[in-house]
Nucleic acid binder design. Structure first.
Length: 969
RNA sequence: GGGCGCUUAGCUCAGUUGGUUAGAGCGACUCGUUUACACCGAGUAGGUCGGGGGUUCGAAUCCCUCAGCGCCCACCA
C-alpha cells in the first residue's frame, strides 16, 4: 500500500472483494459447523419478484439483512442468509403479456397455455437474474449456493403437498362466493390485494313506483345506477316507520326500460342491515354485484342476476341500452336513461371509498364466482407467540396490528385465473350417476390400483369430493370418507380428486378428468418460504440447524400478505415459529415525504448511485437516515455524505501509512508507560463507542449505531486524536527523531493501529467493501489467525468492551476523560480568541496561559499544536495589557496578546452577552435553592448538584467580569 | 366509524426511568489551501420543544384536552 490514491475509489475495490468472498465461499453456510459454541444464525430474504429491479426499498431492506448477517458472523455464528426470488404470478404474467402484445401483437390465448408458459420461463431465464446481480452489487452476503425460486420443482412439490394436506383436512374448499374480481387482470383477488381509495363520484337519487300502491313512490340512492337491471329487491329497515308497512309489496324497477312492467316487479323486503339514517333509507339490492347485497340476497333467497361480464362490460341482461358498454360508460347511460324516464330525482357529487385492484389500479368488481378458499388452520400458538413475547416485533407496535388481523381473519381466496403459477392439483369430472355405488363406479374406470392400494392405505389417500351441480352443495356423507358412498337417483355431479402425485394426475386425465385450469395465489407459495427453501419436507441438516430463523426483515405493507401467513404455516408444518424477531422497516420516501413511484420519477436508481458514490456510501447514507420503524426520507445528500465518510476513513488510514515506518509493518504492543493523555482518552472513547454500537445493533437501532460510529470516528478520532497525535509524530522529521522520540512515535502508531483495527471491524457490517480493502491494506489481516480475520475481516471478531484487566494494564480510568476534555476546552477557547482577535486561521500567534494547575509538557505541546500557535507561554504572574482577549478554563486563564488588532466593541458585546446569560442561570438556580419546597423535597443528590452549579456559575461570572474590566473603556 | 403513530433549530431527526445551559447531521454565514482528507479544517448564527390546562420542588419527558399531518382496519348504498 505504498502508493495510496488520495481519494477512495470504490468501483474496482468492490468487484475485487465480492469476487474474493464468493470464491472463498465466505457466504456459504455449513450446518456441520453449527455447535453449542458456534450457534446458528439465519435469515431468509423476502424474495424479490423475478420481474423486479432493485429500488431503494430493496436497498434499505437488504442492507439491514446484510448488517445483521455480517455482525452475526463476527460474533462467531454460523450464518445462513438464504436468498431467492418469487415468481410473482400476476406481475410477471402481465409483463410477458405486454411484451407479447407489443412485439408480436398476440395475446396469451393466441399462443395457448403451454406455449405461453414456455415464453414466461424463457423470460425468467433471461431476466430473472437481474435483481440477484444487483443485490450482489450492494454487497449482500447471501449464500448463493442455496438460491431458491418459488417455482423450482422441489419448491413446487412443497406447495402441492401443502395444498393436498389442507384439502384432506377439509380446510380447502370450493365455493361459489362473492370475490374481489379484477376486470383488467380477469382474476379473483384476495381481500388483502384490494386497496380502498376515496373516489369522487356521484350519488344518484331515483324514484320507483310501488306496484300495489301506484300513488306511492320511493326514492332510492345509489352510486351505481348501471346495476339497476341486476336488482332483485329493494330493502328497508323493518323498524323504519316510514317504510315498514310496504314490506311485502313490490316496486317497479325502472331498468331495463324495454322490459314489460310485470317482468320488472321486485319485492320490498325488510332487512336489519339497512341504515335508515343513510341516503333515503331505501336500499336497492343487487345480489350479483355487491358483497353486502349478496348476503341480503342469501337471507331472503333472492334471485341473483348478473349484468356485468368478467371484463367489466355489461351483458344482455342489462338491457339493450347498456349491453356491451363498459361499466363506467354504462353508469352515465343509465343516468341518462333514468332522466328520460323521469325517474331521476337528483344527481349530486359524492365521495366514497372504492376498492381498487392493487395490481391493475382499477376498481374491483364484486363478482360471484367459483373459487378455492382456505380456512386458515387453527393454530393457537400463532395467536399467542407475539403477545407472549416468544416472537418479537420491532417496533413492537406492529404486534397490535397483527393481532387485530388475526382476530378478524377471513377465509383466503387462493385460486387465480392465471397461467403463471402453481397449478391447482385438483381434477374434475362431471358425471350422471344412477343408484350406483361410487366404489363400483371407480372400479369400472379401472382404478383398482388406487382403490386397493392407495385409497385403502394411508398415508397417500386420494380425497374424493362430490358436488351437486344444481346448487354446488357437497353430497359426501362424511368429509373424511375416502370412499364416499352416495346414492342419488339423478342429477349431475362434479367429482373432484386431489393429488400431488403426477402419475395419478395423468391417470385421472385418461379417465376424462381435467385438471383445474387455475393457479394458486403467489402468497400461497410464499408463506412456506422459511422452510420450503431449506429442503422441507425432508428433515434436512439445514432445516435442523437453521430453522427457526433468527430474524426477518420486511416492510409493514406485507405484514398480512406474508408475515402473518408464514407464522401460521410455520406452526402448522414445522410445529414452531418461523423466526424469532421481525424487523419492520419504514417506507422509503423522497425528501418531500412523497412515496417513491415511477410516475413521479422520484425514485433514484440505486445502481446509478452505486456507480456514482460506491455501494458502501449508499448503504451508509441509507442506514444513517433510517430510524427504527419510521419512514425514511431519502435524499441523495445522504449518499454523498456516505461517500465523504468513506473518503475520510480512507484518508485516516492513509495518514497512518504515511507516518508509520516505511515498510508499513504494523506496530507492536502498546507500552502503557508511554501512553499520553490523548492516547488514554481515545482508548476510553473507543470503549464507549464499542458499547454504544453493540447495544444499538442488539436493539436494531441501526441509525443510532451509524451515528455513533460517525461521531466517534470523525469527531473524536480524526478531529481530536489524530490532530493531537501529531504532537508526538511530527515532533521531529521522520528518520531524524531521537531514540526517545522514536519510541514515543512508535507507541502512538501502535495506539492508532489498535484503534483503527477496532474501528474497521465496527464499520464492517455497514461498509463491507472499504473495510475489507483497508483491513488487508493496513496489514491487520496478517496479525490474525486465518479464521479470525486472517483471511477476511468478515470473520474477524466483533470488538468487545475492554475488561477490567485491560483497563488496569493500560491505566485507563474515567479521570483521563476529564483531563483530556479540559485540555480540549483550552483549545476551543484559544480558537475563539483567535476569532476575537481577527487572527486568520493560518497565521501563527503566541498564546499565554496562566496555569491554575500543573500542565505536563506533552499536553502543552498538544495545545500549542492544535491552536496553530507559534508559542504557548506559561506565566504564573502574567499581567495582560488592557484589551487582551482572554478566557477562563479549568487549566487556567488563556490570553492572546496582540497589538491593536482586536475589535474591542465586538469583544465587549460578546462578553456582555455571556455575562447576561450567566446571570440568568444564576438567578434560576438561586430561586430554586431559595424555594423551601425544593430544598425539602428534592433528593440530596439533586440539591448538591444545584449548589455546585451555583458555585460554578459564580466563578464564571467573576472571570467574565474581570475580562470586561480588562477590556478597559 | 374504530385503532395506531407523529408534531423539538430553515430541513431531517436524537433526547433513556421527569433533574446541569435541549443535542447531532445537513443547509446558511465567516475565515482558512498548516503535506491524511476541500469528498477538508476552524468558527458563528439559529429553538418560549404544535396550542391550552393539570400533576410535581422541578415537565420536551407523565396525565387531560384541542389542532394539524400520516398510516392501518371497517359491507354505509
Amino acid at each position: 500500500m505504498s502508493e495510496i490514491p488520495k481519494a477512495y475509489e470504490p468501483q474496482s475495490v468492490e468487484d475485487k472483494w465480492y469476487d474474493f468472498w464468493l470464491k472463498q465461499g465466505c457466504f456459504t453456510a455449513d450446518p456441520a459447523r453449527v455447535t453449542d459454541k458456534r450457534p446458528a444464525y439465519s435469515i431468509v430474504i423476502p424474495p424479490p419478484n423475478v420481474t423486479g429491479m432493485l429500488h431503494m426499498g430493496h436497498v434499505l431492506n437488504n442492507t439491514i439483512q446484510d448488517i445483521l448477517s455480517r455482525k452475526a458472523r463476527m460474533d462467531g455464528k454460523e450464518v445462513l442468509w438464504l436468498p431467492g426470488t418469487d415468481h410473482a404470478g400476476i406481475a410477471t404474467q402481465v409483463m410477458v403479456e405486454k411484451q407479447l402484445k407489443k412485439e408480436e401483437k398476440k395475446s396469451r390465448h393466441d399462443l395457448g397455455r403451454e406455449e405461453f408458459l414456455q415464453r414466461v420461463w424463457a423470460w425468467k431465464e433471461k431476466h430473472g437474474n437481474i435483481i440477484i446481480n444487483q443485490l450482489k452489487k450492494l454487497g449482500c452476503s447471501c449464500d448463493w449456493t442455496r438460491e431458491r425460486f418459488t417455482m423450482d420443482p422441489e419448491y413446487s412439490r412443497c406447495v402441492q403437498k401443502v395444498f393436498v394436506e389442507l384439502y384432506k383436512k377439509g380446510l380447502i374448499y370450493r365455493g361459489k362466493r362473492m370475490v374481489n374480481w379484477c376486470p383488467v387482470s380477469q382474476t379473483a383477488l384476495s381481500d388483502e390485494e384490494v386497496e380502498m381509495k376515496p373516489q369522487k363520484g356521484f350519488m344518484y337519487h331515483f324514484k320507483v313506483q310501488v306496484a300495489e300502491a301506484p300513488d306511492t313512490w320511493l326514492t332510492i340512492a345509489t352510486t351505481r345506477p348501471e346495476t339497476i337491471p341486476g336488482d332483485t329487491a329493494v330493502a328497508v329497515n323493518p323498524k323504519d316507520p316510514r317504510y315498514a308497512h310496504l314490506i311485502g309489496k313490490h316496486i317497479v324497477r325502472p331498468l331495463p326500460a324495454e322490459l314489460p312492467r310485470e317482468q320488472k316487479l321486485i319485492p320490498i323486503i325488510g332487512d336489519e342491515h339497512v341504515d335508515f339514517e343513510f341516503g333515503t333509507g331505501v336500499l336497492k339490492v343487487t345480489p350479483a354485484h355487491d358483497k353486502a347485497d349478496f348476503e341480503i340476497g342469501q337471507r331472503h333467497k333472492l334471485a341473483i342476476v348478473e349484468v356485468i361480464n368478467a371484463d367489466g362490460s355489461m351483458n344482455e341482461l342489462a338491457g339493450a341500452d347498456l349491453k356491451g358498454l363498459d361499466r363506467f360508460k354504462a353508469r352515465k347511460v343509465a343516468e341518462e336513461k333514468l332522466a328520460e324516464l323521469g325517474a331521476l330525482v337528483e344527481t349530486k357529487p359524492y365521495e366514497n371509498n372504492v376498492g381498487f385492484s392493487q395490481r391493475a389500479d382499477v376498481p374491483i368488481e364484486p363478482r360471484l364466482s367459483e373459487q378455492w378458499f382456505l380456512k386458515y388452520p387453527a393454530v393457537p400458538e400463532s395467536k399467542t407467540c407475539v403477545a407472549e413475547g416468544r416472537m418479537k416485533f420491532h417496533p413492537d407496535r406492529w404486534a397490535k396490528v397483527y393481532d387485530h388481523w388475526l382476530t378478524n381473519i377471513q377465509d383466503w381466496c387462493i385460486s387465480r385465473q392465471l397461467w403463471w403459477g402453481h397449478r391447482i392439483p385438483v381434477w374434475r369430472k362431471r358425471v350422471r350417476l344412477y343408484e350406483r355405488n361410487w366404489t363400483d363406479e371407480l372400479l369400472r374406470w379401472g382404478w383398482d390400483d388406487y382403490v386397493e392400494q392407495s385409497w385403502a392405505n394411508e398415508p397417500e389417500p386420494i380425497v374424493i369430493r362430490v358436488f351437486r351441480c344444481s346448487d354446488g352443495s357437497e353430497v359426501n356423507p362424511k368429509k373424511d370418507a375416502l370412499m364416499p358412498v352416495v346414492r342419488e337417483t339423478e342429477g349431475e355431479y362434479d367429482i373432484f380428486v386431489c393429488t400431488n402425485d403426477e402419475q395419478k394426475g395423468r391417470d385421472f386425465e385418461k379417465y376424462g378428468f381435467t385438471q383445474d385450469p387455475d393457479v394458486l395465489d403467489t402468497w400461497f407459495s410464499s408463506w412456506l418460504w422459511p422452510f420450503a427453501t431449506m429442503g422441507w419436507p425432508e428433515n434436512t441438516e439445514t432445516l435442523k440447524k437453521f430453522y427457526p430463523t433468527t430474524d426477518l426483515v420486511t416492510g409493514p405493507d406485507i405484514i398480512f400478505f406474508w408475515v402473518a401467513r408464514m407464522i401460521m404455516a410455520g406452526y402448522e408444518y414445522m410445529g414452531e415459529l418461523p423466526f424469532q424477531n421481525v424487523y419492520f422497516t419504514g417506507i422509503i420516501r423522497d425528501k418531500q415525504g412523497r412515496k417513491m413511484s415511477k410516475t413521479l420519477g422520484n425514485s433514484p436508481d440505486p445502481l446509478v448511485l452505486i456507480a456514482q458514490y460506491g455501494a458502501d456510501a449508499l448503504r451508509f447514507g441509507t442506514m444513517r437516515s433510517a430510524p427504527l420503524g419510521q419512514d425514511v426520507l431519502f435524499d441523495e445528500k445522504d449518499v454523498e455524505l456516505g461517500r465523504n465518510f468513506c473518503n475520510k476513513l480512507w484518508n485516516a488510514c492513509r495518514f497512518r501509512q504515511m507516518v508509520g515506518s516505511a515498510d508499513s509493518q504494523i506496530q507492536g504492543e502498546i507500552d502503557s508507560s508511554l501512553l499520553t493523555t490523548d492516547d488514554k482518552w481515545i482508548l476510553l472513547k473507543l470503549n464507549e463507542a464499542i458499547r454504544e454500537i453493540t447495544e444499538a445493533l442488539n436493539s436494531y437501532n441501526f441509525s443510532v449505531a451509524v451515528q455513533a460510529l460517525y461521531r466517534f470516528f470523525w469527531n473524536e478520532y480524526c478531529d481530536w486524536y489524530v490532530e493531537a497525535s501529531k504532537a508526538v509524530l511530527g515532533s521531529a522529521e521522520r528518520g531524524n527523531r531521537s531514540a526517545e522520540q522514536e519510541r514515543r512515535a512508535a507507541n502512538t502508531i501502535a495506539v492508532i493501529d489498535f484503534v483503527l483495527s477496532h474501528t474497521l471491524r465496527l464499520f464492517h457490517p455497514f461498509l463491507p467493501f472499504i473495510t475489507e480493502e483497508l483491513w488487508h491494506g493496513m496489514g491487520y489481516a496478517t496479525d490474525m489467525p486465518e479464521n479470525q480475520g486472517g483471511k477476511t475481516i468478515m470473520n474477524a471478531p466483533w470488538p468487545k468492551p475492554f475488561d477490567a484487566d485491560f483497563c488496569e494494564a493500560y491505566g485507563l480510568d474515567e479521570t483521563h476523560l476529564e483531563f483530556a476534555s479540559q485540555k480540549y476546552e483550552v483549545v476551543t477557547l484559544g480558537r475563539n480568541l483567535r476569532r476575537i482577535g481577527n487572527i486568520q486561521s493560518g497565521k501563527k500567534v503566541k498564546f499565554v496561559l496562566k496555569p491554575s494547575r500543573e500542565i505536563p509538557a506533552h499536553d502543552g505541546e498538544v495545545i500549542k499544536l492544535l491552536l496553530n500557535a507559534e508559542a504557548l507561554d506559561f506565566a504564573e504572574d502574567y499581567v495582560a495589557k488592557k484589551g487582551t482577549p482572554t478566557g477562563h478554563t479549568p487549566f487556567g486563564d488563556l490570553y492572546l496578546p496582540l497589538e491593536g488588532l482586536m475589535d474591542v466593541a465586538a469583544e465587549r458585546a460578546r462578553l456582555t452577552k455571556e455575562k447576561e446569560k450567566i446571570q440568568i442561570e444564576i438567578t434560576k438556580v438561586e430561586q430554586k435553592l431559595a424555594n423551601p419546597h425544593f430544598t425539602q423535597r428534592a433528593p440530596a443528590e439533586v440539591l448538591r448538584d444545584h449548589e455546585q452549579r451555583l458555585a460554578d456559575w459564580k466563578e464564571k461570572l467573576a472571570h467574565v467580569k474581570m475580562a470586561l474590566e480588562a477590556l478597559g473603556t
